[in-house]
Amino acid sequence: SEFQINEQVLASWSDSRFYPAKVTAVNKDGTYTVKFYDGVVQTVKHIHVKA
């Protein structure tokens, strides 16, 4: 599913667990740039983002 900029989502971290994050960019290659609550910004594949 498509997510929008500033949408609150759950994004997987390197430990494969999902954490609350905010979408900061929707990228043309189908990835999302997300910002976790601790301030870390990461680009993740769409399969690693869920509502």
Rank of each mutant, 00 (worst) to 15 (best):
F3S: 02
F3N: 02
Q42G: 11
G39V: 04
T33H: 01
K35G: 02
D38M: 09
Y32C: 03
Q42Y: 11
F3R: 01
L10G: 01
S14K: 13
W13L: 10
K45H: 12
L10F: 11
A11Q: 02
V49K: 15
A51P: 13
I47D: 14
V44P: 02
Y19Q: 06
K45T: 11
F18L: 08
V41S: 09
K35D: 04
V34H: 00
K22F: 13
S1Y: 14
F18V: 04
F36V: 00
D29H: 03
T31L: 02
Y19C: 12
Q4L: 10
G30Q: 02
A11E: 01
G30D: 03
I5A: 04
K22A: 08
Y37S: 11
T24I: 15
E7G: 04
V26D: 03
K35V: 14
T24H: 04
S16H: 12
R17E: 10
F18D: 02
S16L: 08
S14Y: 09
T43H: 07
E2S: 13
F3H: 04
T33D: 10
V44H: 03
S14M: 13
V34K: 00
T33Y: 04
V23I: 15
V34A: 00
Q4K: 13
V26Y: 07
N6T: 02
V49N: 05
F3L: 04
K28D: 13
V34C: 03
A11Y: 03
Y37P: 06
Y37C: 14
Q4F: 08
A11L: 06
V41A: 03
V44W: 07
V40R: 14
K35P: 00
K28A: 13
T33R: 05
S1W: 12
N27A: 03
T31G: 02
D15N: 09
K35S: 08
A11S: 03
S1R: 15
S1I: 12
H46L: 12
V40I: 11
N6Q: 06
K22C: 13
H46P: 15
R17N: 11
T31Y: 05
P20H: 06
A21H: 01
A25K: 10
E2N: 12
V44S: 03
S16F: 07
V44G: 03
F3V: 04
K35A: 09
V49E: 04
G39K: 04
G30F: 06
T33E: 10
I47L: 11
G39A: 04
L10M: 11
T43Y: 05
V41R: 02
T31R: 01
V40N: 12
A11F: 05
W13F: 12
P20I: 09
Y32S: 00
S14D: 13
Y32D: 00
D38I: 08
V41G: 05
K45D: 12
V9N: 02
T31P: 02
K50V: 10
F18H: 04
F36H: 00
I47Y: 11
S16D: 12
F18W: 15
A51S: 12
V34F: 03
P20F: 14
T24K: 06
V26N: 07
W13K: 15
V44A: 02
E7P: 01
Q4G: 09
T33F: 04
V34N: 00
K50H: 09
A11R: 01
K35F: 07
Y19A: 07
Q4D: 07
S1N: 11
G30C: 07
S14P: 07
Y19E: 05
K22D: 03
R17L: 12
N6C: 13
V44I: 09
V9R: 02
Y32F: 08
V41W: 06
R17H: 11
I5P: 05
G39W: 07
E7H: 05
E2W: 11
I5Q: 04
A25W: 07
A51K: 15
V26E: 01
T33C: 06
V9K: 02
K45I: 10
D38S: 13
F36S: 01
T33P: 00
K45A: 13
V49T: 05
S12L: 15
I5R: 04
T31E: 02
F3K: 01
P20C: 14
V23K: 00
Q42A: 15
W13A: 10
A21R: 00
V23T: 02
V23D: 00
K28S: 13
Q42E: 07
K35N: 05
S16P: 05
A25P: 00
V34R: 00
N27I: 03
D15K: 04
E7C: 09
D29P: 00
R17M: 11
V49Q: 06
V26L: 07
T31K: 00
T31D: 02
V40W: 11
H46W: 13
T33N: 07
K28Q: 12
H46R: 15
K45N: 11
T31C: 05
Y37G: 07
W13G: 10
A25V: 07
F36T: 03
E7N: 06
N27P: 00
Q8G: 06
A11W: 02
V49Y: 06
Q4C: 11
N27Q: 03
A25M: 08
Y37I: 10
K50M: 13
A21M: 04
T24R: 02
H48V: 07
Y37H: 10
F18T: 02
T43I: 12
T24N: 04
N27W: 08
A51W: 09
V49G: 06
L10V: 06
V23H: 00
A21D: 00
W13H: 09
K50N: 07
K35L: 14
N27R: 03
P20S: 05
D29S: 01
D38V: 07
P20R: 07
S1D: 10
Y32T: 00
P20K: 06
V40C: 14
D29E: 04
S12G: 09
V44N: 01
F3Q: 01
F3E: 03
V34Q: 00
Q42P: 02
Q42V: 15
A21G: 07
G30H: 03
G30V: 03
T43A: 05
N27K: 01
Y32W: 05
Y19I: 08
S12A: 14
Q8M: 14
I5S: 02
A21C: 05
T33I: 08
A11I: 14
Q42S: 11
D29F: 03
N27Y: 06
K22T: 15
K50L: 13
A25G: 10
Y32R: 00
Q42N: 06
L10I: 07
Y32G: 00
H48Q: 14
S14F: 10
Y32Q: 00
P20V: 09
I5K: 05
F36P: 00
V34D: 00
T24W: 04
H48N: 14
Q8S: 13
K22P: 01
T33L: 07
S1K: 14
S1H: 14
W13E: 01
V44L: 10
H48D: 12
D38P: 03
K45G: 11
D38H: 11
E2D: 10
R17I: 12
A11V: 15
D29A: 01
Q4S: 12
S1C: 14
V49P: 08
K28N: 11
S12K: 15
E2L: 14
K45L: 14
H46Q: 13
A51G: 09
I47Q: 12
V26A: 06
S12R: 15
V23R: 00
P20T: 06
S12Q: 15
L10Q: 05
H48Y: 14
I5D: 01
V23A: 01
E7Y: 04
V41T: 10
A21E: 03
